Computed example of a mutant assay.
Amino acid sequence: MFTYSFATVIVALIVSAYGHDCTKYSLTPSDQSLIDMMKHYLHTSRKADCPVAPAQQDIGVTYVRWGKQTCPENSDTVYTGQAGGNLYTNKGGGSNYLCLPSDPENGKANSYANEGLYGAEYQIHADTKPSGLPASLVEKEVSCAVCRRKGRVSVLMIPGRKSCYKGWQSEYSGFFMSEYKTHNNKDYICMDGDAKPLDNRASNENGALVYPIRTKCGSLRCPPYKDDTEVLCTVCTK
């Protein structure tokens, strides 16, 4: 309403200055100053009301690269660290895996009995490991990196495929993994096909555990799927 009133004043001034017959009349300096002021106000008011499109270089998406402490060449590294989550036997607490930064800002010591944050270990044995991953990963901690892909607006993890659909680009591919079926639930994650350990320590400390997933036909239609096969995955951006 306020802007509309100003606009009405400008129109009235312009009409009075030019007349109804489009003949130009002389303006006093004070008239011209008022018109210029109103034009400037309306111009800046309209700009403030319009959404500002972000610069192309400010657009991007983030994703976790599980099993690696580096990001693909086309992505920036936000931070690196180790995978973690809730203890596999805990009934309460979180059910997702986390990428924990390697430079935490720790809180104060406390004694309440609600430990819910553990490191995550690979449970990849020689007889159960997906093809391409070494059995030497067993009971070593899982590394991770949070990556940012500039110029993209969507990110999607696709289970059951190692390549992206048309119009999407793969950031990395690997194997579908999660907690063991008799343990408490965890999210599914896409473990890099060239996964590496956090370090060389392997002491079977448990915590959040990461196992390969295989298919089971029945309610899962076979074909197109096949029974008892490792599940591939890929992380795609667009």
Rank of each mutant, 00 (worst) to 15 (best):
192 D>A: 14
32 Q>G: 13
158 I>N: 02
25 Y>K: 10
20 H>W: 10
98 L>I: 12
214 R>F: 06
55 A>E: 08
131 S>M: 10
232 L>C: 05
42 L>R: 01
94 G>A: 15
169 Q>S: 12
32 Q>V: 09
87 L>E: 14
225 Y>W: 13
28 T>K: 08
114 N>V: 14
22 C>Q: 09
166 K>V: 12
43 H>F: 09
57 Q>Y: 12
42 L>C: 02
155 V>C: 03
69 Q>V: 06
152 R>W: 00
50 C>N: 11
183 H>Y: 08
176 F>D: 01
72 P>H: 09
140 K>Y: 00
41 Y>L: 15
164 C>E: 02
64 V>P: 00
100 L>I: 14
198 L>Q: 08
87 L>H: 13
213 I>C: 01
31 D>G: 06
206 N>R: 15
85 G>C: 03
189 I>K: 00
60 G>W: 04
38 M>K: 04
156 L>T: 14
33 S>F: 04
12 A>K: 08
215 T>P: 02
54 P>M: 08
34 L>I: 15
74 N>Y: 09
21 D>P: 01
64 V>W: 01
130 P>C: 07
227 D>Q: 00
90 N>H: 07
220 L>T: 10
65 R>S: 04
56 Q>I: 11
44 T>K: 13
109 A>P: 13
85 G>K: 02
22 C>Y: 07
30 S>N: 15
36 D>H: 14
106 N>W: 10
2 F>T: 11
68 K>Q: 14
118 Y>N: 14
190 C>Y: 00
132 G>F: 03
153 V>W: 11
86 N>Y: 04
46 R>G: 11
75 S>K: 05
149 R>P: 00
98 L>G: 03
65 R>Y: 01
28 T>I: 06
21 D>V: 08
45 S>E: 13
68 K>D: 03
44 T>A: 08
28 T>P: 04
213 I>E: 04
